[in-house]
Amino acid sequence: MAITVAQLALQLDGRIVGDADGLINSVATLDHALPGQLTFLANTKYQHQLAETTAGAVLVRESEAAGCPVTAIIVNDPYLSYAKAVASLYPEHREPGGIHPQATVDESASIDPSAWIGANVVVEAGATIGQGVQISPGCVIGRNVDIGVDTRLHANVSLYAEVKIGERCLLHSGVVIGSDGFGFANENGHWLKIQQIGRVIVGNDVEIGANCAIDSGAIGDTIIEDGVKLDNLIQIAHNVRIGAHTAIAGHSAVAGSSVIGKHCAIGGAVGIVGHLDICDNVTITAMSLVSKSISEPGVYSSGLPVEGNREWNKRVARLGQLGKLNNRVSQLEKLKR
């Protein structure tokens, strides 16, 4: 798809310095962009690449426009504007409404005529599929599942019974929603399974990355609020609640009944233990272990960053000596008194 610089600037509420009639048909990085391609400068680390770019147009801030040798579109936030531009230049492919002949659909399911049901999809009794929904091959839609308007499921997504998915959601391949929570009671050394009778409720505009697992509630529901973004390979346990517009990076895990507030940012491979409360506007850096509730907004970290093995061994050895050091200091303080 091609669009003029003028049309693009209008969509982005930007101001043009240069050729407004130039055509843009694709995007590229600042150092590789060619005529006809759009690029952007969001990080001053790449400022030196701006002077040599041959792009058709560059999204820049006002302060960087003078150094741009090609057409500039001046915007407040180049990265955000780039995200909007990509959506215009690369519109999502959508299948026309219909049911593939190799799909299996229970006669009691309700499917909007504009929805697409791909090959080898199974839709069980009582399911409701909304307007414009796209369900790719191999998905399983369980009993009484409800999928909202314009939501898309990529191949091989499994939604267990009673799951509710909101509008305009995007679920990537391998996602499993509504599987049993990890609930067992110990009876004389043997584990007795606890029936998980809650649901999973997913709000609007939620994106769930490939191979995420979100467990059903043990009694109440597991809830993912509007605008939440989950990266690939994330585990969300039973009865967790994730607040609106929180983003969680890959390989993180949230144990049962923890509550994460709104507008939080959680880095990769973070572990959050069960029954905690994390307030709104918290950032947790990668590889952190959250073992207690967080009641104040801010940035939180734990763990040691990588370093040479010899230095790391020395540091860990010193940590092991802290108890002895503390005892010696205490003894010296007593003598001083």
Results as ranks from 00 to 15, higher is better:
residue 90 Y to T: 04
residue 158 S to W: 00
residue 99 I to M: 01
residue 141 I to C: 01
residue 122 V to R: 00
residue 184 F to V: 12
residue 147 I to F: 06
residue 110 S to G: 01
residue 119 A to I: 01
residue 124 E to I: 00
residue 178 G to C: 10
residue 168 R to K: 14
residue 110 S to I: 03
residue 165 I to A: 06
residue 169 C to D: 13
residue 155 A to Y: 02
residue 132 G to R: 05
residue 180 D to N: 14
residue 84 K to P: 00
residue 121 V to Y: 05
residue 105 V to T: 00
residue 77 D to C: 04
residue 170 L to T: 09
residue 87 A to D: 13
residue 70 V to A: 12
residue 188 N to G: 15
residue 128 T to E: 11
residue 145 V to R: 02
residue 183 G to W: 09
residue 73 I to K: 09
residue 79 Y to K: 14
residue 173 S to H: 06
residue 145 V to N: 00
residue 113 P to S: 07
residue 131 Q to L: 03
residue 145 V to Q: 05
residue 205 D to Y: 07
residue 186 N to V: 02
residue 88 S to Y: 12
residue 138 G to P: 03
residue 80 L to R: 12
residue 187 E to Q: 14
residue 109 A to N: 12
residue 82 Y to S: 03
residue 107 E to W: 00
residue 165 I to F: 04
residue 112 D to F: 02
residue 151 T to C: 10
residue 86 V to G: 08
residue 152 R to Q: 08
residue 119 A to R: 03
residue 102 Q to S: 15
residue 174 G to E: 14
residue 199 R to S: 11
residue 160 Y to A: 05
residue 70 V to K: 09
residue 98 G to H: 08
residue 74 I to F: 04
residue 151 T to F: 07
residue 159 L to Y: 01
residue 140 V to H: 12
residue 175 V to D: 09
residue 86 V to F: 02
residue 195 Q to N: 13
residue 195 Q to K: 15
residue 72 A to R: 08
residue 189 G to M: 11
residue 159 L to E: 04
residue 131 Q to V: 09
residue 185 A to R: 11
residue 87 A to P: 00
residue 106 D to Y: 00
residue 181 G to M: 04
residue 88 S to N: 02
residue 100 H to L: 01
residue 149 V to K: 15
residue 133 V to T: 06
residue 175 V to Q: 05
residue 167 E to L: 00
residue 145 V to A: 10
residue 126 G to E: 10
residue 93 H to T: 05
residue 69 P to R: 13
residue 86 V to L: 14
residue 70 V to W: 11
residue 136 S to T: 00
residue 100 H to W: 03
residue 175 V to C: 14
residue 115 A to T: 11
residue 118 G to Y: 03
residue 68 C to R: 04
residue 72 A to N: 12
residue 84 K to E: 11
residue 176 V to Y: 05
residue 157 V to F: 04
residue 81 S to Y: 03
residue 92 E to Q: 14
residue 126 G to V: 10
residue 84 K to T: 07
residue 194 I to P: 06
residue 163 V to Y: 03
residue 73 I to E: 12
residue 182 F to D: 10
